[in-house]
Design a binder for these strands. Structure first.
Lengths: 257, 257
DNA sequence: TATGGTCTATTGGTCAGACCTAATGTACTC
DNA sequence: GAGTACATTAGGTCTGACCAATAGACCATA
């Protein structure tokens, strides 16, 4: 057992001086950090172009390679949008839901998140989302919700149905006027779409049931009845998840390969 | 009013043919997409190194600049970890919660998400998270939760308290064994930490209340009592949010500048 | 007068090659 | 056997050149 003076056996030298591991940041990261900070702090207004690459080169004394890598980092993070050509450049952008949706998507694919986990998360979020919607919805929000649900009723094929379904659920989140919640829903939606696309449990009955459930939730939201909206959404999402998982299990059994 | 043949006034030509805007992908994006797909499909096992940059150059007939930009994209997305030096290279990595947490953080900062929205979102997620924890927790999970709560009780200063608080909340999510939920909690936590850090509403009484609330939730989780865990967590998070927002309002009034 | 062609300047995209720096393996020395 | 020196391999940065896309001005022609 190592003594107090010799906590780590691996230390080979005579000295007992210890230093924390130090990070040696890369030049491009330094530049990216600097620019990111300025963008997020609001110093650069959305839409304004950053200086051209060659201008940044002379300003920073870095090479163009480095400058470009920094810009590329910011682009991937959704903080700038880069356009080529004259009057092009790196235009400041506020990070949007898309970039978050992308990274949620990466997590889901990369970690092989189970459909169950995805649906559970939705079960957590959406009832509350409905409650907020009942509290904060405007007339426009209601119009969007009803239009989306109408598209669900009229959907000619599975893809239209799923898209309209997503629109409605995202619409509920938007009616809640909570940007973070909206962002999360927008991030989860594509993943749910993809996961649902290959399940064939959606028949006319399911579509009809979905339409009716949405309709009753729409009513509660219109009436500003938070508890009812929450309860109905909870039930709707839960039932939907159960049905979906039932089919998934069956599929696994039918096609064990 | 535009007729059916002239839906958009801005179209100047005689033809009514419409084309969608087309994307011209950059070479580095193409490479990045290719590699990303292979990583996510599991073709490259986690931890294996990609070929060295100069090797990729000869394999792809691209320049090193392009190859490096592609690798940088993947690095930002958390799909590879790049190490310098001999035996270095780009090592395949499964995307983790960190990258998602980063992009959630960017959204929060960039969109200036209000503390209220942040806390509301937590109010939606955490009760469900507690419910899952009650259902799926292991003995190790329980030990983590109790240790974290003990650290809350013993916290000598605000920073320790907040950190232990985060640990406990993330611990609940982990006890639920839902990777997505865990990731979201890990993403929201730092933001809540920062938002709370500057509010001075946390005194000994709040800390004591928090400790007791956690304790009772811990019990429900241990007992596998989902509804109770959910209810208590809902109450805890709600009260905490109310208190915090109360202080925030007062702060705004006190310091209108 | 409207449509299309041409030119040019600007700016990002790509390339080739060189050199620097970090990390590691290995042989050598004491 | 511990420590050192060196070679090797890989990423990091720099330079300078050229390609490609785009906007705007100007011109040509039906």
């Amino acid at each position: 057992m190592p003594t107090a003076e010799e906590p780590a056996k691996e230390r080979s030298g005579r000295s007992t001086i210890q230093l924390a591991p130090m990070s040696v940041p890369k030049a491009s990261d330094v530049l990216a950090d600097e620019l990111r900070e300025r963008i997020l702090s609001g110093e650069f207004v959305e839409g304004t172009p950053l200086p051209p690459e060659r201008e940044l080169v002379v300003q920073t004394n870095m090479s163009r390679t480095t400058v470009r890598e920094a810009l590329r980092i910011l682009e991937v993070q959704g903080l700038v949008r880069i356009k080529a050509g004259r009057a092009g450049g790196a235009f400041v952008q506020r990070p949007g839901e898309e970039s978050m949706a992308r990274s949620v998507g990466l997590l889901i694919r990369g970690r092989q998140i189970r459909l169950k986990a995805l649906l559970e998360t939705r079960e957590g979020l959406e009832p509350f989302s409905a409650k907020l919607a009942a509290r904060n919805r405007t007339e426009e929000d209601l119009a969007v919700l009803e239009a989306a649900n109408q598209r669900i009723k009229d959907a000619p094929d599975l893809a239209s149905f799923l898209q309209a379904n997503i629109d409605w659920h995202v619409g509920v989140a938007q009616a809640g006027h909570n940007e973070l919640m909206t962002g999360l829903m927008m991030a989860l939606s594509p993943a749910i779409y993809e996961a649902t696309e290959n399940e064939q449990f959606i028949d006319d009955e399911v579509m009809e049931t979905t339409f009716k459930a949405h309709q009753s939730i729409n009513r509660a939201i219109r009436d500003g009845d938070g508890p009812a909206a929450m309860r109905r959404m909870d039930r709707h999402v839960h039932v939907y998840a159960e049905e979906l998982l039932k089919v998934e299990v069956r599929t696994d059994i039918t096609l064990p390969d």
